[in-house]
Computed example of a mutant assay.
Amino acid sequence: MTYSHIEKIDQPLIAVSTDVCQLYNYLWHATPQQYLEAAITAAGVFPVLIPSFGYRLNLDQLLTTVDGVMITGSGSNVHPSLYGGDTNEANGPYDLARDSTTLPLIRKAIDHRVPLLAVCRGIQEMNVALGGTLATEIQDRPGSLDHRAPESDSRDEQFAIRQNVTIEPGGCLAGVVGTGEIRVNSLHRQAVDRLGPGLQVEGVAEDGTVEAVSVRNARAFAVGVQWHAEYWVKSDTVSERIFRAFGDAVRAHAAAKAGVGLLTS
């Protein structure tokens, strides 16, 4: 008898990073809704929040279950002790519980060939996880633009698309959004400094700040962007294409994994 069975894959699962924050006298493991909305709406996937418990989580087991990983942005910064930087309150706030979870998750996702999308803080975690360093308070560097959010009570104004980024030819991102100049909404005080071994630059700002990277010779989609592609995913073509490409990679991974499970006798 010969038979096969592949269930319809409508919304494959992806693991989503969480921040640890205090609210109502509880510690919460949470992520902003915009990332979840973008994952569902544009990528067409089922986001599952991963609590930030570091070594207590069996991440290898997790990565046999999910078909993608998304590392979100955050108001916190990667702890400088993880890349040999200067630890002080000016470079904070920090979230060591998140760091202890996301950095190994990034490395393991790449090793497991699980598609990876890292946004804002995520690209910084991606760089540190792969041996790179970060520059802090980059707006104070000579010749640097101010990449911070403008002061405003309106989130839409803070996250407005207003910066130019040049996409490098021949890379993964060029195949998604095209080469040349695009407009983005990049809001950050820190940035990639020394690029991690194994990463390649996919996009740079007008002042040379690294705004996008990918894993060189990656065996799956593995891209980090410094800007907030999640925020305008319903109205901005570049943002939508990034999440759609991630979703396509997740579905391809899920389909390939299901194909391995075909039974023949």
Rank of each mutant, 00 (worst) to 15 (best):
R121V: 04
V192R: 09
A38D: 02
D140F: 10
Q163P: 00
D10N: 14
R155W: 04
I106Q: 00
A30T: 15
R219C: 14
K108W: 10
Q11C: 10
R121L: 13
R113T: 15
I123T: 10
V210G: 02
H79P: 03
E7Y: 13
T209H: 13
Y231Q: 12
F46G: 01
D95T: 11
D19F: 08
A245L: 09
V201M: 09
H29T: 11
E137H: 04
I138M: 06
A15T: 10
S154W: 05
K234D: 15
E181K: 07
K108G: 10
I167L: 01
I161Y: 01
V114F: 13
R189M: 04
D248N: 14
A42T: 03
G198W: 05
A30L: 15
D193M: 05
N127W: 07
S17C: 12
C172W: 06
D156I: 05
P142Q: 04
A160D: 03
Q190F: 09
H29P: 12
E202W: 02
V238L: 11
G203A: 15
G122L: 03
H253G: 05
G44Q: 07
T166N: 07
L134M: 09
F159P: 07
D156G: 04
Q61K: 01
S74D: 07
T179S: 11
R98H: 08
W232G: 12
V66T: 09
L262M: 03
D236S: 10
Q33M: 09
R121S: 05
Q226K: 14
Y231E: 12
A90K: 14
Q11H: 14
V213W: 06
R194D: 13
P115I: 12
Q33C: 01
R107G: 05
N88Y: 00
E157V: 02
Y26Q: 13
I242Y: 12
A149E: 15
N25A: 10
K234S: 13
Y55L: 04
P12A: 09
R189P: 00
P169W: 02
G171I: 02
I138G: 02
D193F: 05
R141P: 00
R183V: 07
L96W: 00
S4F: 03
A135T: 05
S17D: 12
K8Q: 14
